[in-house]
Amino acid sequence: MRRKLRIYLPFVNAGMQEVATYRVNWIFFMLGEALSCFVTYFIWSAVYRSGDEASMNGFTFPQMIVYLVLMFLTGTIIASDGAYVVGEEIRDGSIVMRMIKPVSYNATFLFQELGNKLPTEIAIAAPMIIAVEIIRTVMSGVFEFNALRLLLYLFSCAMAYLINFYFNICFGFIAFVIKYLWGANMMKNVIVGFLSGTVIPLSFLPTALEKVLLFLPFSSLNYTPVMIYMGKYSGLELCGYICLQLFWVLFFFVLSKLLWKASVKRLSSQGG
């Protein structure tokens, strides 16, 4: 274990340095993302004003706003670049450099990305959680903060990140089929975005579809952590969804290993 840490910790460090180089760019990117959130906020506020009922499919207006902010935060926490990086390395052949090194491909990449994400995530998560609590208290008049739920949320986010990480690694192997990675990634992001409830809460969909989606891996990404924080899941249900997350982590972990083995056989890299 200690030996492993000694091998992989430098990757965390490298990741941290990488992100420091492009900080300003990253801020502009986040502002752009936040802007889309604002558009959605105004739409929902118009929708709740136009409708007669205070609650739609189990969401009151304050809850919908909390949902929106939490979705944004969760999306940032669990974001993973794997599909692009793996695809790019397959395409330009630099993946062979990873093959000849005596470290695990996935693990090096995982630690590098953690180094990339941790500083910014801590900087974002704390103020946003506080913002959520302020919004909730002001809009609904009750202070509902629950430390246990926060811990469960963070745990669920960690699982969601691992699912997303290994899912993206698996998806990266699509570079063997599609050369236009940017386009392929965009398609994936749209589909995952919809199926994971980022666009609209799954409870707004037809019941049968919602039931199916709750078992697919996508809802384990953003939806489960957000629902946990909002207190929509409790007791046995909550345990069930966390177990489902664990299952999907394991599933994509194994799948990524299998794909890696298969790709070593298929890979033909040009030049050196």
Binding site: I178, K179, Y180, G183, A184, M186, M187, V190
Partner: peptide
């Protein structure tokens, strides 16, 4: 192929 992927995306 790229053409189709981009447009569908």
């Amino acid at each position: 192929g790229d053409f189709i992927v981009g447009v569908i995306g």
